[in-house]
Every structure is written in structure tokens, then in C-alpha cells.
């Protein structure tokens, strides 16, 4: 028998919250037949040493990503607005806490 049977299982992206106060961070991916098994497998694969207190699994096909080819045009609007950073503004000497 070929291994192709397992390949029919969808790909899930796994996100782990390491501890309270932190966001979930992408940890990797895995294959599983459904979300229940995806969570169990994610626990066994990515949190064997207490790396997380909460897991998200998301079907990889459900993620929409920006394209690397249009990276610069897509993020362009942020590039020429240096005044959005506080360091854009020169401070007179002696002024603090601003």
C-alpha cells in the first residue's frame, strides 16, 4: 500500500501561546483528518516540553497571504510616512518625557 492515504489528510497550521500575556505564534504544520486530531497531534508534536498553554490549528487552505512579488508596492503606503514615528520630530534641548 502506498503512503498516499495519509496525504489525503488536510494540512493544518499550528499556533502556540507560550504563556499568558503572549500572542499565539506560528509553530509549524501537520496533517490530520480533522480538527480534533489536528489539536491532539499538535499537542504531541509542538508542546512536549511545556512550550504552550493554548493551541490554535487552522486549515492551511484557509489562510490568505499577501504575495511576496508585490511586497513593496503592497506595503508602500507605509514607506514614505516617517512622520508616523516619534523620532521624526526634533526636540528642543532640555525637553524630557515627550
Amino acid at each position: 500500500m502506498s503512503t498516499a492515504d495519509a496525504a489525503q489528510w488536510p494540512l493544518w497550521e499550528v499556533f502556540v501561546r507560550a504563556r499568558r500575556g503572549l500572542a499565539h505564534v506560528h509553530a509549524g504544520s501537520l496533517h490530520a483528518p480533522d480538527e480534533v486530531m489536528a489539536l491532539r497531534n499538535a499537542r504531541d508534536l509542538y508542546t512536549r516540553r511545556g512550550e504552550g498553554i493554548s493551541l490554535w490549528v487552522v486549515p492551511a487552505t484557509q489562510i490568505t497571504a499577501s504575495s511576496p512579488d508585490e511586497r513593496d508596492p503592497f506595503f508602500d503606503p507605509a514607506a514614505d510616512k516617517t512622520y508616523r514615528h516619534p523620532t521624526f520630530f526634533a526636540l528642543p534641548e532640555g525637553v524630557e518625557h515627550l
Binding site: 498516499a4 495519509a6 509549524g28 504544520s29 508534536l45 512536549r48
Partner: peptide, 30 residues
């Protein structure tokens, strides 16, 4: 047991990394 389980995990991390290049892990196993 923990060590051998880790090795299975290592295989899976690496298959996942390989799949980001557009191949299917069943290909590797076959």
C-alpha cells in the same frame, strides 16, 4: 521512550519544512 518520540517529531518538523517547497511527504516515504 521520550527520546524515540522526539526523533519521530524531528522527522515530522522536517517533512513540514519540505512541504513548504510544494512536495508531498508521502513522496518521501514512498
Amino acid at each position: 521512550l521520550a527520546k524515540v518520540q522526539d526523533e519521530a517529531g524531528h522527522g515530522l518538523y522536517l517533512y513540514a519544512a519540505a512541504e513548504t517547497l510544494g512536495v508531498d511527504r508521502s513522496q518521501f516515504l514512498d
